Simulated assay, not measured.
Amino acid sequence: MQSESEFLAAYDPRAYPAVAVTVDVVALTIRDGRLCVLLVERGEQPLAGRRALPGGFVRKEETLDQAAMRELGEETGLRPGEGELTRVHLEQLRSYGDPHRDPRMRVFTVAYLAFAPSLPDPRAGSDAAAASWVPVDEARDLAFDHDAILADGLERARAKLEYTPLATAFAGTEFTISELRQIYAAVWGEELHAGNFHRKVLSVPGFVESTGETTARGGERGGPRAKLYRAGDARLLHPALLRPTREEGVR
């Protein structure tokens, strides 16, 4: 049997097709009540000048998670492990490998979904001419297959809010039920009945817990001071908070 050292000595990379691995990040946050995605303007070929999701090639000795967080940090001006990036929820979305998705070579990308409660105005990284937060309904005609990646990321985010408490990843450490409802409305793109939403949230064990404090912000139409809540210890929501259109479909 050929040893590893013998194989490496005889290995000729020219005998294998050139392939590469990248990461792309669907980074979502809420600004001025609208769900926004982080986009960059490509500063280099191919597709220079086109808007795209932040991403890039995975470096040697770098894990996929590390590459995704580095790319996100480069566009926000924050270093991984510090500041607002410490509160980012990051998860793998899926992989994409269409043979023609990149004109340079065969490129497989692993897409990530990031939820962030607040991130600063972005600044362009080394391979981007500009970067900005763009409302998701205005993010279209992106480079490569990023329209499809963004659509998959949005659907994952919307589904996550139905069955998990990750809506709190868009909120501060303390929030009102009204502020939580505004997050759901922004991500789902649907207005929600205030009373029904309040009742449903408090009926889910472990979703939120009261801080015992109140605040003047978030009150409904000048009413009494609103109660403040924090994220509870639930990992799944039971019963789930279904989107209104999905609720109608299961009746």
Results as ranks from 00 to 15, higher is better:
159 A>I: 12
160 K>L: 15
160 K>R: 15
162 E>P: 11
162 E>H: 07
163 Y>P: 10
165 P>Q: 02
165 P>L: 06
165 P>Y: 01
166 L>C: 13
168 T>E: 01
168 T>R: 00
169 A>N: 13
169 A>Y: 00
169 A>S: 14
170 F>L: 11
170 F>K: 11
172 G>L: 00
174 E>H: 11
175 F>K: 08
175 F>T: 03
178 S>K: 13
178 S>N: 15
179 E>T: 07
179 E>S: 13
180 L>D: 00
181 R>M: 03
181 R>W: 13
183 I>H: 01
183 I>K: 00
183 I>Y: 00
186 A>R: 05
186 A>N: 03
187 V>S: 06
187 V>C: 04
187 V>K: 05
190 E>N: 08
190 E>C: 07
191 E>K: 15
192 L>K: 07
193 H>L: 14
193 H>K: 14
194 A>P: 06
194 A>C: 09
195 G>M: 12
195 G>W: 09
196 N>K: 15
196 N>V: 15
199 R>C: 07
200 K>D: 14
201 V>E: 08
201 V>L: 10
202 L>G: 08
205 P>G: 11
207 F>E: 06
207 F>D: 05
207 F>C: 08
210 S>W: 08
211 T>N: 03
214 T>W: 00
215 T>I: 03
216 A>T: 14
217 R>Y: 09
218 G>P: 03
218 G>Q: 10
218 G>H: 13
219 G>R: 15
219 G>H: 14
220 E>K: 15
220 E>V: 15
221 R>L: 11
221 R>P: 11
221 R>V: 13
222 G>Q: 08
223 G>A: 14
225 R>G: 11
227 K>H: 02
229 Y>T: 01
230 R>K: 00
231 A>M: 02
233 D>I: 02
233 D>K: 10
235 R>A: 12
236 L>F: 12
238 H>G: 07
238 H>S: 10
238 H>A: 08
242 L>F: 01
243 R>D: 06
244 P>N: 02
244 P>D: 03
246 R>G: 05
246 R>I: 12
247 E>A: 10
247 E>K: 07
